[in-house]
Design a protein around this nucleic acid. Structure first.
Lengths: 136, 136
DNA sequence: TAGGATGTTGACAACGGTAACCAGTTACCC
DNA sequence: GGGTAACTGGTTACCGTTGTCAACATCCTA
């Protein structure tokens, strides 16, 4: 263990009850969730926390690379605590269940395509959506 | 030529001046553009057309598979006329310049990963973003 | 080709997710 | 413990997008 993953906070930020609660909830959940979803869950658990604070906290966690952000078809942002190394996702459309996947060949392919077309500062999004065996 | 690509309209829909204008503009543009962007461009060209109509037309074109839809980091939808076969995009973050790319190996990889995890009805999004040589 | 049924348009209002504001509160450092 | 700078959260504002509905255009039929 290189870092303390639980109750992980963003360096340079103060440790508050609210931030701890958001980080802690994300640690427990395996699926991608929307900000409003997380806010509702926190209140359901008795955490007094404002929606604004949830948005702010998620944003700073995302900026710090602590969590991953995806967009649903409707354009809503969804968040999930992920491992720190580069990876992609296999996400169930029904329940949000997520599997982290790796594809070294895909990384190489993307870099090659970008280079062939003289693009620089390359990033890519690769997400696979489907219906998981529980929902199938 | 199997189908008439220019002035392409959606089957079952009436052919109106506004729909023709939107489809025609998309035919001319090589880059991904937002609905508001397209609306502004059409008005600049003297086309009387409402923003609502632009949104509706883009939606029906997208539903019919006539155009591709992507989401920017900010969640805004952007649209582009694309070839009909399955492909992905290499998109310039600065100017929206787009290159259609293919990656058979990526398709196979995505299918394999999904199958290994027992996911069905699989789709995937693969987009590469970077800075093109003109903007670099 | 006229006339009507029905799909389409567009100004406007509403909506939903997200971000800005700012006064009150809290964590951190000495 | 006390000062200060960061944080919180209710509220308001924002922005992309969609719903509404009366006026209108298209297309079919006679």
């Amino acid at each position: 263990m290189t870092t303390d993953r639980n109750s992980a906070t963003v360096p340079g930020k103060r440790s508050t009850r609210q931030r701890t609660a958001v980080a802690g909830l994300l640690d427990q959940l395996a699926d991608f969730r929307s900000a409003q979803d997380l806010h509702e869950e926190l209140r359901k658990r008795g955490e007094g926390i404002g929606l604004t604070t949830v948005y702010r906290t998620l944003q700073s966690l995302a900026d710090a690379g602590e969590i991953d952000v995806l967009r649903t078809d409707s354009g809503e942002a969804i968040y999930r605590r992920c491992s720190s190394h580069h990876h992609h996702h296999l996400v169930c459309r029904e329940c949000g269940h997520t599997v982290e996947v790796e594809g070294p060949a895909v990384e190489r392919w993307a870099d090659k395509v970008a280079a062939e077309n003289k693009f620089s500062q390359v990033s890519h999004t690769v997400e696979i959506f489907g219906t998981c065996s529980d929902c199938g």
